Simulated scan of single mutants.
Amino acid sequence: MRKHIVTLIFTVVLLIGGTTESFAASSSYKVQKGDTLYKIATTHKVSVNELKKWNDMKSNVIKPGQQLKIVKSDNKMKSKEAKKKIAKTPSRSDDDNVVKEITVNASAYTAYCNGCSGITSTGINLKRNPDAKVIAVDPTVIPLGTKVYVEGYGYAIAGDIGSAIKGNKIDLFFPTKAEAYKWGRKNVKIKILK
């Protein structure tokens, strides 16, 4: 009897002690009126592409009441915390996990241009977020949701598209027309980040 109790206690200790691995936890989120994929992704600290992948979505269209699956991983959270501790300096590309570097022709736009709604194709409301660093891209060159570093502009996200943005062209968001005019149009290097 005593031998069985010792064996049972030993087994329980092994089971509890052996659960130190990180497992992905899945939860769901009910889409509210006014939500965008970008807003939901930012709130849950995941990417728009991950949300679309987990929910088998082909577009960025969501509807109030829709249930979205959100996957959280302890390992992912720990790696994000570790990355936050590393100071990002534009001149230190080795910390940025640069996937590719290309030269592009960069123009500028605002949320208040003629015919603009102020909401990007990925759902970012630029009028409510004037400090957002967003670029419009040709998604066949730079996929939407990609993090980038643009020479002279800084870190940004590829969050919009434009009818004139084809090939190696990008359009940088600025909160005011004066800043957009000041930027003008120029060739710059862009680092596509992992």
Results as ranks from 00 to 15, higher is better:
residue 93 S to A: 14
residue 145 G to L: 03
residue 70 I to Q: 06
residue 81 E to A: 14
residue 148 V to H: 04
residue 151 E to L: 03
residue 134 V to R: 01
residue 133 K to R: 14
residue 96 D to S: 02
residue 70 I to N: 07
residue 108 A to N: 10
residue 74 D to E: 12
residue 150 V to K: 05
residue 107 S to K: 07
residue 131 D to H: 06
residue 101 E to A: 14
residue 147 K to W: 09
residue 100 K to N: 14
residue 97 N to C: 10
residue 139 P to W: 02
residue 114 N to H: 06
residue 81 E to K: 12
residue 121 S to C: 12
residue 125 N to W: 02
residue 138 D to F: 08
residue 71 V to Y: 07
residue 123 G to R: 00
residue 83 K to D: 15
residue 113 C to A: 12
residue 120 T to L: 06
residue 153 Y to W: 11
residue 81 E to Q: 13
residue 144 L to S: 03
residue 87 A to G: 14
residue 123 G to S: 01
residue 111 A to C: 10
residue 149 Y to I: 03
residue 130 P to N: 04
residue 78 K to C: 04
residue 78 K to Q: 11
residue 93 S to Y: 15
residue 111 A to Q: 11
residue 71 V to P: 09
residue 106 A to I: 06
residue 137 V to N: 06
residue 113 C to M: 11
residue 89 T to E: 13
residue 117 S to E: 00
residue 125 N to Y: 03
residue 142 I to D: 05
residue 79 S to D: 10
residue 151 E to W: 01
residue 144 L to W: 05
residue 97 N to E: 15
residue 137 V to P: 03
residue 141 V to K: 10
residue 113 C to H: 08
residue 110 T to F: 05
residue 92 R to G: 07
residue 122 T to A: 13
residue 121 S to E: 15
residue 72 K to H: 14
residue 104 V to R: 00
residue 115 G to R: 03
residue 144 L to N: 02
residue 119 I to L: 07
residue 95 D to V: 13
residue 97 N to T: 14
residue 84 K to N: 10
residue 86 I to C: 10
residue 97 N to P: 10
residue 78 K to P: 01
residue 141 V to E: 13
residue 89 T to Y: 10
residue 121 S to F: 07
residue 96 D to V: 00
residue 89 T to G: 08
residue 148 V to L: 10
residue 147 K to V: 02
residue 122 T to Q: 11
residue 138 D to L: 11
residue 72 K to G: 09
residue 136 A to C: 06
residue 149 Y to N: 01
residue 127 K to R: 08
residue 94 D to C: 06
residue 152 G to I: 07
residue 135 I to N: 05
residue 80 K to R: 15
residue 110 T to C: 10
residue 86 I to Y: 06
residue 78 K to Y: 08
residue 81 E to V: 07
residue 126 L to W: 02
residue 98 V to Y: 00
residue 123 G to H: 01
residue 134 V to I: 13
residue 87 A to N: 13
residue 89 T to I: 15
residue 96 D to K: 02
residue 75 N to V: 09
residue 106 A to L: 08
residue 81 E to P: 03
residue 83 K to H: 12
residue 87 A to L: 13
residue 101 E to V: 14
residue 143 P to C: 00
residue 103 T to E: 03
residue 69 K to D: 07
residue 112 Y to H: 12
residue 70 I to K: 08
residue 88 K to M: 15
residue 148 V to T: 09
residue 128 R to P: 00
residue 99 V to K: 15
residue 75 N to W: 04
residue 95 D to E: 15
residue 84 K to P: 04
residue 83 K to E: 15
residue 114 N to A: 13
residue 105 N to T: 11
residue 70 I to E: 08
residue 82 A to V: 06
residue 107 S to A: 11
residue 102 I to M: 09
residue 148 V to K: 04
residue 100 K to D: 14
residue 139 P to Q: 05
residue 78 K to F: 06
residue 80 K to I: 12
residue 92 R to N: 13
residue 99 V to Y: 07
residue 114 N to S: 11
residue 128 R to H: 09
residue 123 G to P: 00
residue 77 M to P: 02
residue 125 N to K: 02
residue 124 I to M: 05
residue 92 R to S: 11
residue 91 S to M: 03
residue 139 P to V: 05
residue 90 P to L: 01
residue 88 K to G: 15
residue 107 S to W: 09
residue 90 P to G: 01
residue 105 N to F: 03
